[in-house]
């Protein structure tokens, strides 16, 4: 469903993505692992065109989307994103955060948007926090609202950029639970994370990224038990201390 071919990106003199190839089929949960600075976030941001790649192609359902003729807004409506720092709209309640996309971008009617918003917030377990503002919510709650917000747009796939890295340990569980539930419902997901438990148990595939390239990719059991590339091996060793 999502295919990335030969992606290159420079930030100034820094060659961040050095020819990345990745394919994500419908329903797959791909976890991208790797040391910091390897370009994982950049890769994610290229997929929904928040960052424009310098070279290479990105395909969504066979259609090349990094094309001058295609509006990035259209792409972003098909692919949702959940950020490390939640990025909830501080001036809106939880419910309004979820429905603002429906109201303004999808031009949905207020009543229906409201209904869907409530459904989604119930799905992530926050029915009692509809009228709360982000500042009144814990980190875990904010991230769950953020997931509901991304799901509201009925995306074909959702990208997760280190969703639990900014959370206190006691809130990581609740967010991972929501993500697991989402995966079991068949959502296509690309997740950048350091949570190895999630990678092992929920991912259908693991891609190891280092210094701008995907060095290895395989099923979780393959990757964690016998990584082929030497850098991958070093990484797994360090993780499984």
């Amino acid at each position: 469903m999502i295919r990335v071919e030969g992606l290159h990106k420079w930030f100034g003199e820094n060659h961040v993505l050095r020819g990345v190839d990745l394919e994500v089929k419908k329903g797959e949960v791909v976890v991208v692992l790797g040391p910091s600075g390897s370009g994982k976030s950049t890769l994610l941001r290229c997929i929904n065109l928040l960052v424009e790649p310098d070279e290479g192609a990105i395909f969504l359902d066979g259609v090349r989307v990094n094309d001058r003729r295609i509006r990035p807004e259209w792409v972003r409506q098909q692919v949702g994103m959940v950020f490390q720092s939640f990025n909830l709209f501080a001036h809106l309640t939880a419910l309004k955060n979820v429905t603002v996309g429906l109201n303004k971008v999808k031009k949905m009617g207020a009543a229906e948007a409201d209904r869907r918003g409530r459904e989604l917030l119930a799905r992530v377990g926050l029915s009692d926090k509809l009228g709360a503002y982000p500042a009144q919510l814990s980190g875990g709650q904010q991230q769950r609202v953020s997931i509901a917000r991304a799901l509201a747009m009925e995306p074909k796939a959702v990208l997760f950029d280190e969703p639990t890295s900014a959370l206190d340990p006691e809130y990581i569980r609740e967010v991972l639970d929501v993500m697991s539930a989402l995966a079991s419902e068949g959502m296509t997901m690309v997740v950048v994370t350091h949570e190895m438990g999630f990678a092992r148990n929920v991912a259908t595939r693991v891609a190891f990224m280092s210094e701008g390239e995907i060095l290895e990719s395989g099923t979780p059991s393959e990757f964690f038990s016998s990584p082929k590339h030497e850098r991958a091996r070093a990484f797994v060793d360090k993780i499984l201390q």
Binding site: S85, F86, Q136, S138, Q142, L167, D168
Partner: peptide, 8 residues
């Protein structure tokens, strides 16, 4: 930094 560390 976002004030993410809030209890409850």
């Amino acid at each position: 930094r976002r004030r993410a560390r809030r209890t409850g």
